[in-house]
Write a protein that binds this DNA or RNA. Sequence first.
DNA 1: TCTCTATGTTGACGGTGCTGACATTTGCAC
DNA 2: GTGCAAATGTCAGCACCGTCAACATAGAGA
Lengths: 197, 197
Amino acid sequence: MNKGSYHHGDLRQALIAAALAVVERGGAEALSLRELAESVGVSRAAPYRHFADRDDLLACVAARGFEDLNVGYEAALASPGDGRARMRIASQVYVDFAERRPGLFRLMFESDLLARDQPPNVLIGPANHAYQLLWRAVAGADPRADEKTVKARTITMWSTVYGFLALDRARRFKPFMTEPLTRAEIVEAVITAATGV
Amino acid sequence: MNKGSYHHGDLRQALIAAALAVVERGGAEALSLRELAESVGVSRAAPYRHFADRDDLLACVAARGFEDLNVGYEAALASPGDGRARMRIASQVYVDFAERRPGLFRLMFESDLLARDQPPNVLIGPANHAYQLLWRAVAGADPRADEKTVKARTITMWSTVYGFLALDRARRFKPFMTEPLTRAEIVEAVITAATGV
DNA sequence: TCTCTATGTTGACGGTGCTGACATTTGCAC
DNA sequence: GTGCAAATGTCAGCACCGTCAACATAGAGA
């Protein structure tokens, strides 16, 4: 495909892949479109043939992130053990994702991409799928709970795990992480508090 | 002081006040130093006589935010009722702060200002004071708990409340906020789950 | 009054996202 | 095959940004 000159071959996918690599570590604010274009060996304006603007590209990157997260969720839901054990594994998947790809995690859960009146189309599907899988994990842990209860539990559990990850990344727990508690113990305590198992 | 010309009078405080007003709503990324300077009636480079750079100004704004939050915490800790009731009130103070000044809240708890090797000097004091007040609220709710327990409880409680506020602001709970649950009910449920009271 | 210092201004540099005009390549219809 | 239109690249330039060096002004203390 790539002739070594004028036309790139599959610039769109190349840009998403390169952007993903940058965002994974440094988050959305580390991404410069000009730099990105240069790193792929193309002129500054070329990306605009494939993405409306910066946010459009970021939405595609975030969508890719949700797809990867969903793969982990699917595996957690298919794992052996009872519903409570599966919910715990799903939480661990979320924690691992946040720790391995912090910038991407931030893009997915802190950016305002999904807060818009009209969220990016590419993002809606994968994001909603993630919500459904999480819901299913929580509901499966207590089949007798009604809808209202499952909603409230999903929200509080998600809040606890996400809140810990976000505050920890921003080093807000620094004064608490000393002495008797190790970080691993804290992560354990948070997951237990969140899932009740 | 202000002669209507060359010298401003108290540019430093004027800049902090104006920046605070911008950041409160739109967060740090809404702040343009050039725009800010113009809004105060001064040239683009003038702020650099009072702040080393953009981050220095943002640190002062964040410090002001922590000071305001601490006033609320102090009031919560001095309120009537038992320790558990005071902890609940402290949580409500945090929630109110986040809802009234979302951008400032984000600057205080999501920015990397405090994650640096050498955090800004102006910020360390007020931030640490906030941590101590929160700690005192949690410890006061159960005087018999040991240090390890108090630390773990502080972290999980803070995580739950903060996580809810952050995810809610980013509209990640949109699919869950429908039908049987009102938002007020959810806030109640989250505070109850976090504080256990 | 004179001078030193604090404070404000101007112009410039390199960076950013984005656009309109132009160039090249590819693929499809004939 | 040929020719034309659409897809995809380039280039120059706009407006904005944070920041800095050089210069101008005002106020305070000797």
